[in-house]
Nucleic acid binder design. Structure first.
Length: 425
DNA sequence: TCTGGGGTCCTAGGACCC
DNA sequence: TCTGGGGTCCTAGGACCC
């Protein structure tokens, strides 16, 4: 049996752990730049605040109902997520971390245990150790455990735990679930399936295998098998190295000057290089993109350019150099830019770096020196805090405030930043 | 005034190889 | 009337997830 444990209203729950006055109150957490609502407490849901709605559209109700509002605090949520995972892993060793608030659990070596009792114990322990409330669904496949989890959360009688086993019950529930709620069915498939009169999860369950394969590829077929209780998706307990890494942000206000965008892009390139080094990888392609606001009536422009590095690298200085070169090629004056970013691909492990055919000893030496320098920078930034030391091009200037992310409602980084903790006190 | 930031997998078709 | 039989790699586009 497979379990899916999921933290309820996760970002809101993290804020509540450190601010219990938020209990029983409507609370929302916003996306980066305080753009949209990405998490809601049950009380906020009851007020009709929809997932993903732009913040400016709910300002009236926020004031009227005294909704507590928070900017995303990923330092806090990431750390709380690690605590939840390690608590779960102490009880069930085989865990796949699926997202910041979800883990799949493998119960197959717990055959003789009462899964209901065990499940209750898991929820209770996580709450006790971390303060985060969770829901747990258990079934034969990942897809069915997603459904069981949904049932655990939605029904008051299940109290955050549901073991979905009985074939007849499975079919009954499937008949109540819109096909669009299934894991793996998005907007496009929902429309396509509706045209063929497939509306509920049970409709899809009853659709012939051949039709599914033909119209929904192997991906849909796996989903179909999983619904029938035949596992096709394995637990992935080790994290696979990423194939692409992207760092991008919207500006807090629209930007027109190349110099400002250069500063922002250099900062993103630095972050991207840090992420590469953390994964122990080097890149040989760097893609840079800029775009204007797609919702506004102002002239629109978006473009990207990919540079091929002469030699694979994860050196911040190298990435900044090529990112700015790419930017020069796509920047057009006269537009109000909203966002820029850097994406690296073609990643290879650091220790399998392909050097240039024409590299000489001097080049080797400079490569080693670069690695040492980056190592020192990473160590200092880890020990004394982010941005303790950085490359000059990405340094903060008078212009920085005009592009840096807007976070007007940020809570302290209670668990990862000592100064923040003191401030909170 | 104001609309996020990351990722993955699959398929078809084109280009090329022997 | 008739034109081989295998392959690989790359890219764009489509679909999805949180």
């Amino acid at each position: 049996m497979i379990g899916l444990i999921d933290s309820n209203n996760f970002y809101v729950s993290c804020e509540r752990v450190f601010n219990p006055r938020l209990e029983n109150r409507p609370v929302v957490v916003l996306s980066n730049n305080d753009g949209n609502v990405v998490a809601r407490s049950n009380e906020a849901k009851a007020l009709g605040i929809k997932m993903g709605i732009p913040f400016h559209q709910i300002k009236t109700i926020v004031k009227l109902e005294e909704v507590a509002v928070y900017s995303s605090n990923y330092a806090l949520y990431g750390d709380m997520s690690r605590r939840v995972t390690s608590t779960v892993r102490d009880m069930i060793p085989d865990v796949e971390v699926y997202s910041i608030d979800e883990q799949f659990l493998d119960f197959n070596s717990f055959g003789k245990y009462d899964l209901k009792k065990l499940g209750e114990q898991i929820n209770r322990t996580v709450k006790q150790y971390t303060g985060i409330p969770t829901s747990l669904g258990i079934a034969k496949t990942k897809t069915l455990s997603k459904i069981a989890n949904h049932l655990a959360k939605k029904s008051m009688t299940h109290k955050g735990l549901y073991v979905l086993e009985n074939e007849q019950l499975i079919k009954e529930y499937l008949s109540l679930i819109p096909v669009s709620d299934l894991w793996g069915i998005g907007g496009r498939y929902t429309l396509k399936l509706a045209k063929h009169n497939i509306h509920t999860a049970l409709d899809l369950y009853n659709t012939p295998e051949q039709w599914v394969k033909q119209h929904m590829t192997i991906v849909g077929l796996r989903l179909w098998y999983e619904l029938h209780g035949m596992p096709c998706l394995q637990l992935e307990e080790t994290q696979k190295p990423k194939k692409n890494i992207c760092t991008s942000r919207s500006f807090s206000s629209k930007q027109t000057e190349l110099s400002v965008i250069k500063e922002a892009l250099a900062t993103h390139a630095t972050t991207c290089a840090q992420k590469l080094r953390k994964q122990g990888c080097v890149t040989n392609f760097i893609n840079v993109f800029v775009q204007t606001n797609r919702y506004s009536d102002d002239p629109k422009y978006s473009n990207s350019f990919t540079c091929t590095l002469p030699e694979s690298s994860n050196d911040s200085r190298v990435l900044i150099h090529y990112a700015l070169k790419a930017l020069e090629r796509i920047f057009r004056a006269g537009y109000k830019y909203q966002k820029c970013g850097v994406m690296v691909s073609g990643l290879t492990p650091e220790n399998q770096r392909q050097t240039s055919l024409f590299a000489n000893e001097k080049a080797d030496e400079s490569l080693t020196k670069g690695d040492t320098l980056m190592g020192v920078m990473d160590t200092l930034n880890e020990k004394y805090g982010r941005d303790t030391i950085k490359i000059g091009t990405a340094a903060k200037s008078k212009q920085t405030k005009s592009w840096e992310m807007n976070q007007s409602y940020l809570s302290p980084k209670y668990t990862t930043n000592w100064e923040d903790l003191l401030r909170a006190k």
